[in-house]
Nucleic acid binder design. Structure first.
Length: 891
DNA sequence: CTTGCCTGCCC
DNA sequence: ATTCTGC
DNA sequence: GCAGAATGGGCAGGCAAG
């Protein structure tokens, strides 16, 4: 029996105890695929299910009375929760094997999966190791996760119920990990999300499609052209790696990959910097791919492509995580300070709270659950308050608050960095108590106290945890999703879950806090005024300008620390030091979190500049004194103020608070222009103004009632965006000629994934955009067929473009393409000699396919003169001609 | 020291 | 970003 | 209606190659 934590069943399904318990047969995909070695890999799923059935899965031998099975269907999860309690050493194999009876299945694919029935042998015996290094306790085979992914991938498009099955399987995999090696759970979660830590830590692997292509060639001894040829067919480099590996015989058997090894190796790859870093990254990648077998190489490659292609993204992970903790709930564990008993946890947290330990620091404690794995550069991964940009002695790595916190006597606990962390348990006790005492509090008081008495609490709490008609799973899903949106650090959320918090407790502890980004609320695209009014029927609403800039979430704490985050929760502090100063100067509140849009502005005229100007701003080491692109901030929401979370308040109340928050300064920091509306004519008037002011259109938001809350990370009809280019009368529509195409990937494999489009100019064709969206699947099929006859061997001499598509076509078809804007392009050549623009052509922003123009000849396609006209029209409005500005912009 | 490729992140 | 699609 | 997966233009930054 391993020393890892054990759960046992204390109560049972009401079924009789099976007098003849037996161990479930070892059922693992690895066993099967190893045996068959090279046969169709998709078979094992079926094999597994058959085997499970044969072994008493659905029949009675496992101890389930048939009478219970109806109940099972309705609320299996709830039953399990009560059944699976955690125990320490009191019980061992004998109780699981004999004393208690066996419940459920050993197959992760089964609804009744029970990790307690798995033995270590299940995933260790078949490792075929000549090197036991990776198989010691608390290591979990990566292949088990990869196999779960594969099972899910195989389910895709298999019909109704496959979604539920997806998160069930993944959740069961998490349960297995949680049960046998809880310290490894976070690795599995992050790997499933194709991330190596919370977004705001800014970890990049630095490996992309091209590097992967080269690696594939090197590793599997193929030429680039060979691989590219294969890519045409399969459309997936991962599959190519998988197939290549199948055909390879290795001289020796390297150690098997474990979750921890894979994760650490990936993090190490991410950490390489400076000279030869690309080489070292590639070497690191090989260290992952060489030992990878079966499904592993495929998913390793897809990880770096940030595309697992199994139909699982964060929302599904949350579902799976919920499933895992609902069915395998840790309640009690005294050893090594890992888990604290439920009641104790509250006092423990109280205790910690008084000594100033914030959830951020609690996340450090979670590192004592051996969620520590990060090497030097990202050592402070679990510290949310890292925001210090000072360089350390080497000038390379940033010293973050987290490092400072640990710089005292506690340093030793974190020093294991790249070393093996497994043997560090003994220190956990000491460190924990040390931590408590040495921390000092910053923002904790407000968090625990204020929010209890706030209106947000009294306002429809049942709305947040709707009881009616929801299963336990659904209630928890909602809660955990919401918590994760407000505190987007899985380490912390999982830490809380490990302590068995109730939903209310969890929610209370996952409140917004300055310095930690909140997933921003998003808006749904709307195509007409009518749709807007329909959606807003019976509701009070407000319309605001939709500025064409960069979303910016502004945090200020009571020590005047300012942090800035992008729409995707990346740090932007370095990019906007000027904003930082403005925030400190203009804010009237103690602390706050604001939602806003930064827009490039001409400070002299106060005129808003196009997005393309903003995007030229430097991103790193920006000196506030010498900024080339000036910006204005348009603030439109307030998520937290003076210690109080406002997200549950109605929009109009948040706006009231926002007004009290800061002094607007013209051309520096203003309120987003907007007003309450009630009918189409008001919207139209505002839209005209919005267009005149060079913004994208309008945002329409519910002002009052339960739909007026700020719902982090959600895209609902409570916020609508009405962009001018969505409206038929306003967008730019062009008739373009298809001159080339690129092979599709993933679900577009076997057809073209995108097309190169051109305008016609006096016997020549100039590329203006690629287009890849707007096609139905049928369209793509038809187009693929239609264009086969037009494929050229070579690039026609009368094509003028800097882009090299996979295939060229002779000019035949004309398509209608819609776009939001036109921009100056370094790669497209449309109208290049009609403009004085430093060898730049014109391109389309947000191009989409509308329809085939059967009625048009290629010579009737849009002409350069028209494109030029459209381009300049963007900078003009009905009031004035802005020649000067335009010239400035072009130069 | 310049140029070009690659990546990640804005939209 | 936009768009389409399965559930 | 949600979640996922196709794909767009274009910029700075970082490194490698010349």
């Amino acid at each position: 029996m391993s020393q890892s934590k054990r759960y046992i069943q204390t109560t049972l399904f009401g079924g009789k105890i099976d007098s003849t318990p037996k161990r479930a047969k070892i059922l693992d995909p690895k066993v099967e695929s190893h045996k068959r070695n090279g046969s169709d890999p998709s078979d094992w799923l079926q094999d597994l299910e058959n085997a499970a059935r044969k072994n008493g899965g659905n029949a009675t031998p496992s101890g389930i009375e048939p009478a219970c099975q109806d109940e099972e269907k309705s609320s299996v999860a709830e039953k399990h929760v009560e059944q699976l309690l955690m125990a320490d050493d009191l019980v061992g194999d004998d109780l699981v094997g004999d004393g208690a009876h066996q419940f459920g299945h050993v197959s992760i694919l089964d609804e009744h999966f029970n990790p307690a029935l798995e033995t270590c042998d299940d995933w260790q015996a078949f490792t075929g190791s000549d090197n036991k290094k990776h198989y010691i306790d608390d290591q979990y085979l990566f292949s088990r996760l990869a196999d779960a992914w594969y099972a899910i991938e195989s389910l895709k498009n298999s019909g109704s119920g496959s979604k539920k099955k997806s998160w069930m399987i993944l959740g069961n995999c998490f349960r297995s990990i949680l049960y046998h090696c809880p310290s490894q759970l976070l690795y599995a979660l992050y790997l499933s999300m194709q991330k190596l830590g919370p977004t705001y830590f800014g970890i990049e692997t630095g490996i992309g499609e091209n590097t992967l292509l080269k690696i594939t060639c090197e590793l599997y001894s193929r030429s680039i052209n060979q691989v590219k040829e294969l890519l045409k067919k399969s459309g997936d480099l991962g599959t190519i790696a998988y197939e290549s590996k199948i055909g390879m015989t290795t001289l020796y058997k390297p150690p098997r990959l474990t979750l921890e090894y894979v994760f650490k190796q990936m993090l190490e790859i991410a950490n390489h910097q400076g000279q030869n870093s690309q080489l070292r990254r590639r070497e690191g990648l090989k260290r992952l791919l060489v030992p990878a077998i079966d499904q592993e190489p495929k998913y390793i490659i897809r990880f770096f492509q940030k595309q697992l292609r199994i139909g699982v993204k964060t929302p599904t992970i949350i579902q799976a995580l919920t499933h895992a903790f609902l069915l395998s709930k840790p309640l009690h564990q005294n050893r090594q300070g890992s888990f604290v008993e439920n009641e104790d946890f509250n006092t423990a947290v109280q205790d910690l709270t008084h000594t100033g330990v914030t959830p951020l620091v609690l996340s450090y404690i979670s590192s004592h659950l051996k969620f520590k794995c990060y090497s030097t550069k990202h050592r402070s991964l679990f510290d949310h308050q890292e925001c210090d940009d000072t360089k350390d002695a080497t000038g390379n790595n940033k010293v973050r608050d987290g490092d400072k916190i640990l710089d005292g006597e506690d340093r030793k606990t974190e020093d294991c960095k790249t070393e093996d962390c497994r043997t560090e348990d003994c220190k956990t006790e000491d460190c924990k108590t040390e931590d408590r005492k040495t921390e000092d509090c910053k923002t904790e008081d407000c968090k625990t106290e204020d929010c209890k008495t706030e209106d947000c609490k009294t306002e429809e709490p049942e709305n947040r945890f709707p009881v009616e008609g929801k299963t336990e799973q659904e209630k928890w899903e909602i809660c955990i999703r919401e918590c994760y949106s407000r505190l987007p650090n899985l380490g912390v959320v999982v830490f809380y879950l490990m302590h068995g918090l109730t939903r209310e407790q969890l929610h209370e502890r996952c409140q917004l806090s300055p310095g930690i980004p909140v997933a921003p609320m998003l808006a749904k695209p709307t195509k007409s005024y009518t749709t807007v009014l329909n959606n807003m029927e019976g509701l009070e609403f407000r319309a605001e300008f939709k500025y064409d800039g960069e979303r910016l979430q502004i945090h200020k704490d009571d020590h005047n620390n300012v942090s800035l985050f992008s729409r995707n929760m990346e740090r932007l502090d370095q990019k906007y030091p000027d904003v930082r100063d403005r925030v400190i100067n203009n804010l009237k509140c103690n602390d706050c979190i604001l939602d806003s849009e930064v827009v490039a502005i001409n400070p002299a005229t106060g005129k808003i500049e196009p997005f393309q100007v903003l995007s030229t701003r430097k991103r790193k080491d920006v000196d506030a004194e010498s900024i080339d692109v000036q910006v204005c901030l348009f603030v439109f929401d307030c998520l937290r103020c003076n210690g109080k979370s406002l997200v549950d308040l109605e929009l109009y109340k948040r706006l009231e608070q926002l007004e009290k928050c800061f002094n607007p300064v013209s051309n520096e920091m203003e309120f987003a222009r907007g007003q309450n509306c009630s009918d189409q004519s008001e919207l139209e008037v505002l839209m005209d103004e919005a267009i005149q002011k060079q913004t994208e259109g309008l945002m329409i938001k519910v002002l009052k009632g339960s739909k007026a809350r700020y719902e982090p990370s959600k895209r609902t009809v409570n916020w609508l965006k009405l962009k001018k280019d969505y409206l038929d009368s306003l967008g730019d529509s062009l008739d373009l000629v298809v001159i080339g195409a690129f092979y599709g990937k993933g679900k577009r494999s076997g057809a073209y994934g995108s097309f190169l489009m051109a305008i016609y100019d006096n016997e020549e064709y100039y590329s203006i955009t690629k287009v890849a969206t707007g096609f139905s699947e049928q369209d793509l099929q038809n187009i693929y067929q239609d264009l086969q006859t037009h494929v050229c061997d070579q690039k026609p001499y009368y094509y003028n473009t800097r882009i090299q598509p996979d295939v060229w076509f002779s000019p035949q078809q004309v398509w209608e393409i819609r776009a939001a804007d036109l921009s100056l392009s370094p790669v497209h050549t449309a109208a290049i000699n009609k403009m004085n623009t430093d060898n730049k052509g014109i391109a389309l922003r947000f191009p989409r396919f509308i329809r085939v123009r059967e009625d048009k000849q290629t010579e009737q396609a849009t002409k350069p003169s028209q494109v030029v006209e459209m381009y300049y029209a963007q900078f003009n409005n009905n009031q004035e001609i802005l020649e000067d500005d335009t010239e400035d912009f072009l130069i």
